[in-house]
């Protein structure tokens, strides 16, 4: 990235006598620099790197045999399956919502837009426990639809639909909030041009808008998926913890841990930690593309 300062002949990037004097005036002494780096890395090591490492070390403490047995055991497999199902339903739902919300917010001027933006972000400020609780109040036996559901032999709470609903709630804003700023920066000219040239709404969306936002969409999906697979609090409230039936991976970890099966708990945890690392790598790769896109869009709109 080139800052205006670097373009000037006196910029700190140029070698020579005068620039070096400026460089020392706007940078810290070497010992300060390395102390700060040491403090930062020390803090991150203590709070990030060591906790990550401990997951894998504890998982393999009793050898590969125990590790493989823990992740291929029937209850673990059913937990993995349920986690994948919950993510496979909630991520597409929130993608459709994110695209719809971004389309109306970014491409049109209407009253109440800021309120709508705040409401979309709302699930992020709700405690996971409360996210589960509100669905118990609506669909639980004592809830609004409790009796009706019981009479029709339908189960939401303590069953898969409740887990999916809670997951949809906690991952609600992820896709929308990645798409909205990019689509706002990109403006409406390209879509309008396509309209003038005779394209219909679906064609505009598929040929113009979607290709323009595909990286941001992917970015939102990655974040949404990571949260969907890892959610614990909200799912814990609505699941009922029925082994082999309504246990997701994070809940399975809790059960194993509370039964003092530490190696097994960490083995299942290592799968989720691996997922987190894959998420970070993908996020890093996609983030650079999205940043570049936003910059281009920003420059164009200026």
């Amino acid at each position: 990235m080139s800052t205006p300062a670097e373009a000037l002949p006196l910029g700190p990037a140029r070698a020579g006598v005068a620039p070096r004097r400026i460089a020392t005036a706007t940078t810290e002494p070497t010992w300060v620099k390395w102390t700060l780096i040491a403090v930062a890395l020390g803090f991150l090591t203590l709070f990030l790197f060591v906790p990550l490492a401990v997951v894998f070390v504890e998982a393999l403490k009793k050898g590969w045999g125990v590790y493989l047995a823990a992740i291929t055991e029937a209850d673990a497999l059913s937990a993995i399956k349920l986690t994948l199902i919950a993510a496979a339903i909630s991520v597409p739902l929130n993608v459709v919502f994110g695209l719809a919300a971004a389309w109306c917010i970014a491409k049109f001027e209407f009253r109440g837009k800021n309120l709508l933006l705040t409401l979309i972000d709302l699930p992020f400020s709700v405690s996971p426990v409360i996210s589960g609780l509100i669905y118990v109040l609506v669909f639980g036996l004592q809830g609004w639809f409790g009796e009706w559901l019981r009479d029709h032999d339908l189960k939401v709470i303590f069953a898969v639909p409740g887990i999916v609903l809670a997951t949809v709630f906690v991952t609600f804003p992820f896709v929308a909030r990645e798409l909205i700023p990019l689509m706002q920066a990109q403006g409406t000219e390209q879509e309008e041009a396509a309209r003038v040239l005779g394209a219909n709404g679906w064609q505009i969306f598929r040929r113009i808008t979607l290709p323009n936002v595909k990286w941001a969409l992917l970015y939102g999906v990655i974040l949404c998926n990571a949260r969907a697979m890892g959610e614990f609090g909200a799912v814990s409230v609505v699941s009922g913890h029925i082994r082999g039936q309504t246990n997701t991976m994070p809940l399975h970890i809790e059960i194993l841990y509370n039964e003092y099966q530490f190696a097994a708990a960490f083995a299942v945890a290592s799968l989720l930690a691996g997922l987190a690392l894959v998420t970070l790598v993908l996020k890093y790769l996609v983030e650079r593309r999205v940043k570049a896109l936003r910059q281009v869009a920003g420059e164009r709109s200026e």
Partner: peptide, 12 residues
């Protein structure tokens, strides 16, 4: 890796 706490499930 700074984003790890966003990506790592809370139970883990």
């Amino acid at each position: 890796l700074v984003d790890l706490p966003f990506a790592l499930p809370t139970a883990v």
